[in-house]
Each structure stands twice: as structure tokens, then as C-alpha cells.
Design a protein around this nucleic acid. Structure first.
Lengths: 331, 331
DNA sequence: ATGAAAGCGCTAACAT
DNA sequence: ATGTTAGCGCTTTCAT
């Protein structure tokens, strides 16, 4: 009489009249098993509807068959694309991904990351929301590698995979300068955000390289929403010496700037960081610093799996290149 | 001398000079533990950097601390919003979510779902890509509840959580008819997709209710991309008897149709199923059948947790209501 | 080629 | 209030 609940290997062994170990060998496709035995075991498995318990297997073998992905905002399309790419790489290696989101809350990040470690994930991809990740030091030392994504982490030895924010912004602003623009506005979100800081630095590098100094009156930061960016742009356009070009440091700023510019047909060249839906449908041509979000996820996953495989070496920071593309306009 | 690797409860017990069970009691915050003991154990835990092994705990206790979410397309923002909501509900109950995507491949769906069951997830939320889920019958019988999301599944007893596709489409088309439109085009993706079938049916119900018969020449299906929808719309506009209104059965169709309509300022009323980024920035007013993707995820997760908690009753299908809203235009 | 025994790290059941 | 023992379902030794 079978016990209640799911059948186990012992049940299968009894049913097939073989030893536990033989069942295990068949399940794991180990060599040196008589085909006749294999057949008998398979029949018993089918008869009982047996499915192996991966939890028990990984407990004994110590193998890790999941990785963790802690996003800072899962509803953000950028992180979604990243997550999907991470999942694809993982599934390709027979692993699954446990996903969670800190929603930019440092305490949540910590508790989620530690929880995943308790679940013995093979590794962790983390978008830092906290300013310090030393709470993971023990885990990293115990052999759970961590890869930081999109923003650098602090306090532990871990690889980082970032977008080339600085290079992308520099290229976009350099192009505006090369086109002869004398008054270039900069629209930014809060500059204490890592990516904003980098993009601003890149923009300023472009000015410096051209031997130019940006007009502080044309730099507006702290713009969280398209609405705020729109208002800021309208103010700039209404001012005495209006800008002839604008660099927007993220897609929300770009969208807001366009909302201010398009209705009035203002003659302002627009360049922005991040592509966005419908950018190709814009009635006017703009320049976008574009990058491949999926490639960032793939890169992070591959970096993590390299570490899981025991690849040694000091931690590295890899920058995903950006490219300057045209969007919108009639071609 | 400590063995290599992570410290275990036994190590903590030895270090604190107490029994294994006492450590377990402290870790699990069980009652009836002397505060002094608790202190000693906590000290040992901190000293050794101990973190409990959740895998081992759940093996012994038989408890399930993850749920599975199998999407059909993780890069789709709709499913991602759903996934984020599912994750929020799960984390709120101390559980985590393992996410995977079938990418609309029936074989992948099967293998991912069964893999998750081997990992002993407490339950499964599944966006069906296959036409039959009877491969999960054993798992459902063994006590792993399944909830179908966005599309109904087949072959097993499981709850479904769907959007009211039919009602939403019916309302949108009814409104166009009530506004006096005589020639209403229908732009659809492949009609063998459940949601498309439902939305088409809803549209046709609106015609029937108005005692009208749609012109087959104005119904175009099989539109997978905005590009295809744009081309289809352009063809319709160029035809002899162009439509005066169009109902687009998903946001890709809506975007494509707008690409065809906006540049030429064609006088066509637009209604579409699914909201999309930037819909509010459109230069003209359109009507959108909107719904709350996060609410769908929350509903699915709560339905699943009810089942996990052992709530009995026959399986149900719950429809998430839609609402018709205005987007774009200058107000 | 097959099997018996031990044990992964924890919790459950039963002492004391 | 604390400890002892067994055992979750599997993989890993080590025999045969």
C-alpha cells in the first residue's frame, strides 16, 4: 500500500523490484545500466506517475539550480527586457530564475537578496537600490557570486555590468556641438542617481573636449516625470536666450521636452538618452542614445554563470556600448 | 575545527553549547525558549555567520515557499506588469516567484511547468501557450494548484483569471456605432489567439446589437506588428469607400493604425484595445479599452493562494472588467 | 551492472 | 524549557 502523497524513488524501486540506486541511475541517465532494467524502471515510473523531487536532489548533491534576480523596479520596461534575457540564458543552462523587485527600497533589497541566498540560489543578479551591499559579504565568501546590473554596488567583491552612460551622453552632446549649436540645454533627473550622474558627466566631457563651457542657466535637473521636463523646456524656450538644442538624459525627459517643442514647432535640435515606444513615429527627426537592454541581461547572466562555473579573476566592470541613432522624421 | 563550507545548525549548536533543537527553536522564533538561551544562540549565529538553509527546511517540513509563473512572453510589458503584481503578493506572504517564459512554444510551456513542479512550487500561474494542459493532471491531483491567466487552459481542473475581452470590445465598437459611424474597420491579430477571438466576437456582438452587419472588406486579421497594421490601414484608407472609424484589437494594431492615420490627418475615429506608452501624448483624441494589468496579477495570485490554503470549491473563471477611456488630444 | 548504507541540513515527534 | 531520535527524498560513497 502506497503512502499518501506523491510517490518517491523508494516506491518506484519497490514497484519495479529493483534497488533505490538503480532508479536513481535511470532518472539521472547514468551509464552502465542494463537496458532491460531501464525499461522496467521506466514502466514503474509511468505507472506510479513519479516525478523526482528536485529539492531533495539539490539538498543532497549541493547543486544549485536557480539564480536570483533582484530588480529595482520590475514594472520598468527596461528591467523587464533585462529580466527576460536573464531568464532565457538561465533556462538554456537548465536553471530557473527567481525574480523579485526592491521597488527602490534598500531594506527590501536586503531582505529579498538574503532570502534568495537562504534558498541557496547559485548566484544573484542585483540592481542595487541600497548604497551598500556588504550585507552580502558572507554569502559571496561562501561561494554565491553576485553581479551588479545597471548600477555599481558597494561593499563586496562582485562584477558589474553597466551601460556606457558616460560615453553615450558624450557622443550625443559632441554631435550637437559639432553641428554648431551654441546654446545647448541639459535636462536631467535627480543627479544623485548613478546613471544621471554619469550621463551628466559625459555631457560635460563633450563640452570640455570642445573647449566650451555650458551655460548653467540651461542645465535643469531633478526632472522625474515627462510633465516636469515639459514645464522646464517651456520655461527655457520662453526665456530671453532660448536654447537651440537640448540633450535629455532619459526618455521621460525626452518625451517631456518633445511635448513642449512639437506643438510650437520650436526650432530646437533634440537628442536624448534611452529609446522609447513610438519614437519612430515622431513627426520630426531626433537623435537617440540607444542600447540593447536584452544584451545587458545576457551579459549579466553570462558573467554570473562564468563565476558560478568557478572562473577566477578579479571582479570586473563591463560597459555595454551605446549607439547614436536617428528616430522619427520622414524618410 | 569547522568543516569547509557554510556553517550548519549543528555548528551553531556546538558553538553555543546547546542542542540542535534549541537552535532550530530560536531560528524559527518558537515559543518557550529562555531569553538567555536565545541570546547565546544568537551570538553563535552572528559569530559563525550562519544562515539557514531554506532548501533543507522545506524538504523536511514539506512546506512550499515558492510559486511558479510561466508567462508566454516575458518581454511583453503586459505580462511583466502582471508578473510584478504576482511577485508583490507572493513576497507579502513570505514566498518568492520563479518566473519563466514559454515564448509561445507549447513544448517549452510543458517542460517549464513540469520543471517547476519538480522544484515543488506551491502552485503555478500559467499563461497557456499549448492547447492542452493535461500533462499537469498528476501535479494538480497531487496538490499543486494551477491558475490560468489571460487565456483559459484545458484538460485540468484549474481556475482561470481573464480580461473581459468580449465586453471591452463590444463597448468600444458600440460607441463608434452610436456615434453614427457607417463604415467601421476592424484590425486584428491572428484570430486563432484566444483574446483576438474574444475581442472579435465582442465587436461583432456590438454590430448585431445595433442591427448592423460589418463589411467583411473592412475586417483585416493576422496583423502581428504595428508595421503590418499600418500597411493594412493605409490600404483601407486608399480604397474607394474608406472607413470613417477603426477598432484595433490590440495596442500593436492601434499604434500601426495611428502611424497610417496621423501623418495624413485622415478623419478616422480610432478606438483600440490595450493602452500603450505615450497614448496620452497623442496629438489626437482616441478611445482605449483599458484594464489594470497589475490587478489581473493580484487576482491570479490571490486565487492561487486561496487554493494553496486549501479553499475548496469547483474551479471558477473570473473576468477582470475593462473600461473605455479617452487618450490623447488637447484638453 | 547492481545494491546497501550513510548522510545532505533541517524539522517533527517524542522524551525529559 | 530543553534535548534525543528519527527521517524528509534524494545522491554519494563503497561493496559486490
Amino acid at each position: 500500500m502506497r503512502k499518501s502523497g506523491r510517490p518517491t524513488m523508494v516506491d518506484v524501486a519497490a514497484d519495479a523490484g529493483v534497488s533505490l540506486k538503480t532508479v536513481s541511475r535511470v532518472i539521472n541517465a547514468e551509464p552502465n545500466v542494463d537496458p532491460a532494467m531501464t525499461k522496467r524502471v521506466r514502466a514503474a515510473i509511468a505507472r506510479l506517475g513519479y516525478h523526482r523531487n528536485a529539492i531533495a536532489a539539490s539538498l543532497r548533491s549541493g547543486s544549485r539550480d536557480t539564480i536570483g534576480f533582484v530588480s529595482a523596479d520590475l514594472t520598468n520596461t527596461f528591467y523587464m527586457s533585462v529580466a527576460a534575457a536573464v531568464s532565457t540564458v538561465a533556462v538554456g543552462r537548465g536553471m530557473q530564475v527567481i525574480m523579485a523587485s526592491s521597488e527602490e527600497d534598500p531594506a527590501a533589497e536586503r531582505s529579498l537578496a538574503l532570502d534568495l541566498c537562504q534558498r541557496r540560489v547559485g548566484g544573484l543578479i542585483l540592481v542595487p537600490a541600497a548604497s551598500d551591499q556588504s550585507y552580502l559579504a558572507h554569502e559571496v565568501d561562501s561561494g554565491t557570486p553576485v553581479v551588479f546590473l545597471d548600477r555599481p554596488g558597494h561593499g563586496i567583491a562582485a562584477d558589474s555590468v553597466l551601460i556606457d552612460n558616460r560615453g553615450g551622453a558624450r557622443a550625443a552632446v559632441a554631435e550637437l556641438l559639432a553641428a554648431g549649436h551654441e546654446r545647448i540645454a541639459l535636462l536631467l533627473d535627480a543627479t544623485d542617481i548613478f546613471t544621471m550622474e554619469e550621463r551628466q558627466a559625459g555631457a560635460l566631457e563633450a563640452f570640455a573636449a570642445a573647449g566650451r563651457i555650458p551655460d548653467p542657466a540651461l542645465i535643469v535637473s531633478g526632472l522625474h516625470t515627462p510633465q516636469a521636463a515639459c514645464a522646464a523646456m517651456e520655461r527655457l524656450l520662453d526665456a530671453e536666450r532660448a536654447p537651440t538644442a537640448v540633450f535629455c538624459a532619459n526618455n521621460r525627459s525626452t518625451i517631456g521636452a518633445l511635448e513642449a517643442i512639437l506643438p510650437y514647432g520650436a526650432d530646437v535640435a533634440v537628442a536624448g538618452f534611452d529609446d522609447f515606444e513610438l519614437s519612430r513615429v515622431l513627426p520630426r527627426r531626433i537623435r537617440i542614445v540607444d542600447y540593447d537592454a536584452a544584451a545587458l541581461g545576457t551579459l549579466a547572466a553570462m558573467t554570473l554563470f562564468d563565476r558560478i562555473a568557478g572562473q577566477p579573476g578579479t571582479t570586473s566592470t563591463r560597459l555595454l556600448p551605446t549607439r547614436l541613432v536617428s528616430r522619427g522624421g520622414r524618410d
